[in-house]
């Protein structure tokens, strides 16, 4: 078997397993209260980590400076998302500020 097929099968396994396990057991387990509560923090926790690591690190270096256009875009998106709830408006505002910042910096 070629290395590509082995890798696809291996990746399918390690990707599908964590996705499937909770759903497979879904009808049999009842989550304790504290765990239900903990799960309500999952979207905020994971997405924030992804946001911060993608926008503050470039070429594996922390870029916590005002010349990093990601910071301007993220700030704009944050403000716009606080004002209104439409995801499209937030994305659009963030992109516009990003490209303006890129042009000017």
């Amino acid at each position: 078997m070629s290395i590509e097929i082995i890798l696809i099968v291996a990746m399918l396994a390690v990707t599908y397993l964590p996705r499937m396990l909770p759903f497979a057991l879904a009808s049999r387990i009842r989550l304790p209260m504290w765990m239900q509560e903990a799960m309500s923090y999952v979207p905020i926790a994971v997405l924030t980590v992804i946001i911060v690591q993608t926008s503050l690190f470039k070429q594996d270096q922390l870029q916590l400076t005002l010349t990093n256009p990601y910071i301007w875009a993220a700030f704009a998106a944050f403000v716009v998302a606080r004002i209104q709830a439409k995801l499209f408006i937030t994305v659009l505002s963030g992109l516009i500020v990003f490209f303006i910042a890129k042009l000017m910096l």
């Binding site: 923090y41 979207p43 905020i44 926790a45 994971v46 997405l47 924030t48 980590v49 992804i50 946001i51 911060v52 993608t54 926008s55 256009p69 990601y70 875009a73 993220a74 704009a76 998106a77 944050f78 716009v80 998302a81 606080r82 709830a85 995801l87 937030t90 994305v91 505002s93 963030g94 992109l95 990003f98 890129k102």
Partner: peptide, 30 residues
Amino acid sequence: GLEVAMVVAFIGIVVPALQLPSHWICALVA
């Protein structure tokens, strides 16, 4: 820098979810 689209989209999802003070603590620590 097109990853920025993903970053701002995720911000648009996280920000409205920040409703309790403990949600802000969670985001800050994250």
